[in-house]
Structures are given as structure tokens and as C-alpha cells.
Design a protein around this nucleic acid. Structure first.
Lengths: 137, 137
DNA sequence: TTCTTTATTGAGAATGAGTCTCATAAGAGT
DNA sequence: ACTCTTATGAGACTCATTCTCAATAAAGAA
């Protein structure tokens, strides 16, 4: 689990400042768990009487995403969702078209296969987006 | 290759009308080839002096996508791109972060593996989004 | 601690892809 | 050609996200 001290180190090592707003957004997203959009994070913080602006939530989430603290998830409805990357638990997502549920999955073989395909084309894999849209059986 | 007659059949079988605007958008996207956003399609048609509105391009692309004539591609920059689905040539995309190039790929094993993973979780695969973001070696 | 420099914040305006409205036009069946 | 209904055009509108800019506050220096 990433501590606030780690947040501080990561931010400062990249020349960013360690501000209360950034701590709040980061901790809130971690506390909420799962996948949330900026509006949800903003509302949650607001409901707790926290003094933070919408713009700052968007900006902070962006900073966190750029530094690998947070992962961006676009499901196709025009609203970006984010999840805190606690440890190195890489996974992809299954989105249930019936319920909207987001299920995480990971498959070693799949990961290897992707690397192989990219290499075959003469490239290096930087990141990937893999979403399986499913329905209950 | 899908003919205009096929476009007519597909549209009408779903209760949609076979209009000149729909033909134009469909043929333009096919002629352009590759992946394009609605604005590009609109501009292209406009530059040829065609009388079509922006709204109609968006509406038509949506109708075509709903009927499997066109495939939507979201690369994460907030602009939806589309490609004509000529035949049954399913493929996924590699996006080069250096050049912005979009390369198509297909891997049989990958397809099977996805099905397997979904089944394992008790779901049925409806569709998937699989994008590999790469850099030149 | 105080000073300086410079990034960050808040509030609201601005942006822009995509959608909606509604009066008019035009497919398609009869 | 007639009728019913869907499609279109033009522009207004949405709404997530970004930008502006004056005020604020990190963080290092003195």
C-alpha cells in the first residue's frame, strides 16, 4: 500500500508540490476503492466539507495518472474513470453490458501474447487497453 | 466488398431509410480508407461540394455503427474514429505513440484466449476493445 | 523565521465533440 | 400522386474537461 510519504516522494521527484489537495484527492480515491470519475471524487470530498475545486480534482487526477499513481479507464460513455494503483496489481477489465459492473481480470498468457505480437511488428509495447464487454450467461 | 445495394438492404431491414446522405457518408468513409473522425468525413464531403450537415454525418455514422457497417475506435483523445467494415476482417489496433499511426493486427490465439477468460468468469463475450500503444524499436 | 521564487488553487469562463430541436424535406408503401 | 413517418439542416444546447488569471502557498534560500 502506498503511503502519503510515498506520494510526497513521487510528486517531489517529478518537480510537483506536495499539497493538501493532492493528498485529499489521492486518499479519497483510495478510500473509495474501485473505479470513479472526477465528479464523484469531487462530490465525495465536497460532502465531507472539504475545500477543493473541481478544476483541482481534474488537475490532480491528471498529475497522479501521469505519475502512475492512478489508472485511467475509458469505458466508452465519455466519462473517464480512475482507480488508485495501490501496488503492482496489473489487470484489465470486463464490463458487463447488463449491469455496468466492472470486473478486473489478469491473465499471464494474455500478457505474454501481446508482447509477442508487438515485437513481431517491430515495436515495443508501452501500455495497452484491453476491455471485454460481456453479458451474463 | 459491400455494395450500395447491400447498404440499402441492411438499412431497410432495420427500418431505416436508404437516403443519399447515408450513401455519401458510407461511400466516403470507404473511399478514404483507414480510421477517420466525423469531422474529417464532414470536411471531405464539404470539400467536394456535397450538401450534407454535420449532424447528419454524426447521425449516419451512428446508424452505420449500430448496424455493423462501421466500427468505432476510441484512442483516448476524446475523438471517436470510424472505419468501414468491408468484409469480415476482424482486427484490433496498435497505436504508435511516436507517429500516431494506427496499425491493424489479428491473432487467432488471442481471440480464443479472450473467450476462454470470459467464460471462466461465467459471462459471454459480446465485443472487446484491445489497443496496444507502442513505440518504434 | 522570513524572504523569494514559482507552482498551485479557486471560481468561473471557455472549449469542443457530440446531441437535440423543430420546421422542412423526402423515402417508401399504397 | 397521396400519406405516413422518418430524415435532414442549421443552429442551439450539453456537459465533461480545460483554460484563465488573480490570489495563495509550497519549498528552498538566507
Amino acid at each position: 500500500m502506498k503511503t502519503n510519504t510515498q506520494l510526497k516522494q513521487i510528486l517531489q521527484s517529478e518537480g510537483f508540490r506536495y499539497t493538501p489537495q493532492r493528498q485529499m484527492v489521492w486518499n479519497e480515491l483510495r478510500k473509495m476503492g474501485g473505479h470513479h470519475d472526477c465528479e464523484e471524487i469531487y462530490d465525495e470530498l465536497k460532502s465531507k466539507g472539504t475545500r477543493v475545486s473541481r478544476a483541482t480534482v481534474y488537475r490532480t487526477i491528471d498529475v497522479l495518472a501521469r505519475n502512475g499513481m492512478v489508472r485511467k479507464l475509458e469505458v466508452g460513455d465519455g466519462i473517464a474513470r480512475y482507480e488508485a494503483k495501490e501496488d503492482e496489481d496489473h489487470h484489465d477489465h470486463m464490463i458487463c453490458l447488463d449491469t455496468g459492473d466492472i470486473i478486473e481480470f489478469y491473465d499471464e498468457e494474455l500478457e505474454r501474447l501481446q508482447e509477442k505480437i508487438v515485437e513481431k511488428h517491430g515495436y515495443t509495447l508501452v501500455k495497452h487497453v484491453h476491455q471485454l464487454f460481456v453479458k451474463k450467461k
